[in-house]
């Protein structure tokens, strides 16, 4: 299993060269963590919406991430679009894929009354099917986006590339929009109503089917963007979604089911924690520590998922 948040060129190495004085360490890990958390923030916010509304852990969401990156490669490299212009159709297609998984697999299964723990197994099956379908079509090799020229910016001794900054800005815009959508609009209220009491929501004239399709679309777009930004930082391969989904699920469960706010905070914390552990030891240890922390948090909570 490769690293979940790929260690970034330059910044980690530069920081390691400077030596681990505590103040620098904290500053650096917050800075790098924020830069690198953007795929995780998007993925966590999208994932938590589906989890909130339909009440099961959707492993196939990882394929929204992977396919988002591959759609971007298709538009960017395959069709020769400008990098920034290929982001939009790629994210929309990822959203459409997510809606398709809901309509053709998850909705029929939910209608048949499949239990939540079996829904997860179903989603893992779908995830494998999509992933290896992709491998069959395009091969398992890494593919790269043809990116615009990279420029480095310097913030008091800390480096960031223009792409990282653009990703961060886009994530902030998207996250604010999503936050506004969920907590400030009528549609957000409808989602929350439906998640809390489906019968009551239906009686009030809410069409659960329509809302679900919209939510799965928004979640898919978020996943697709997350995949594109992971692709920007490193490369796209068929396993990237699977590698990110585990940490995403962890973050969402720790944050509390359906809390977009919590997912936002928890993913930033996870990003900072990852870069901190990466700075003081090996990148892979940060994953080990995160996963162990996750098991311990579940145990402390005594099984309540929220």
């Amino acid at each position: 299993m490769s690293t979940i948040v790929p260690p970034q060129v330059g910044s980690v190495a530069a920081s390691k060269r400077r030596g681990p004085t505590p103040m620098w360490l904290i500053r650096d890990s917050i800075f790098i963590g924020l830069l690198e958390a953007s795929p995780l923030i998007l993925a966590a916010m999208g994932f938590t919406l589906i989890y909130y509304l339909n009440g099961f852990i959707n492993f196939a969401y990882g394929e929204s991430i992977t396919f988002g990156a591959y759609f971007a490669v298709l538009f960017n490299v395959g069709m020769g679009f400008n990098f920034y212009f290929s982001i939009v159709p790629a994210a929309l297609l990822a959203g459409a894929l997510s809606v398709a998984t809901y309509l053709f697999v998850f909705k029929p299964a939910l209608n048949r009354g499949v239990q939540p723990s079996e829904m997860i197994i179903l989603s893992v099956g779908l995830s494998f099917m999509l992933r290896y379908g992709l491998v069959l079509m395009v091969g398992a090799e890494n593919v790269f986006l043809s990116e615009p020229p990279i420029a480095f910016f310097n913030f008091g001794g800390l480096g960031a590339t223009n792409l990282q900054l653009i990703a961060l800005i886009l994530v902030v815009i998207f996250a604010l929009n999503l936050y506004w959508l969920i907590y400030k609009t009528g549609f957000g209220e409808v989602i929350r109503g439906l998640a809390n009491n489906e019968e009551l929501a239906q009686v009030s004239g809410i069409n659960p089917h329509q809302v679900s399709v919209k939510v799965w679309f928004i979640a898919g777009v978020a996943g697709g963007l997350s995949g594109i930004f992971s692709g920007v930082f490193a490369l796209a391969n068929p396993l990237m979604g699977w590698n990110l989904i585990l940490i995403t699920i962890m973050v969402c469960i720790v944050a509390g089911v359906g809390s977009v706010r919590g997912a936002l905070v928890a993913s930033i914390v996870a990003g900072i924690l990852t870069s901190f552990i990466t700075l003081v030891s090996k990148p892979l240890y940060s994953e080990v520590v995160l996963l162990m922390t996750f098991i311990l948090i579940l145990w402390r909570r005594g099984g309540r998922m929220a």
């Binding site: 697999v105 029929p108 299964a109 048949r112 499949v114 079996e118 197994i121 179903l122 893992v124 099956g125 779908l126 995830s127 494998f128 099917m129 999509l130 992933r131 290896y132 379908g133 491998v135 069959l136 398992a140």
Partner: peptide, 17 residues
Amino acid sequence: PNMKLFFYGALLVGVLV
């Protein structure tokens, strides 16, 4: 091998649904 995992996934989805 990739085709195998693809079919495994499809089978699992089919069986569970």
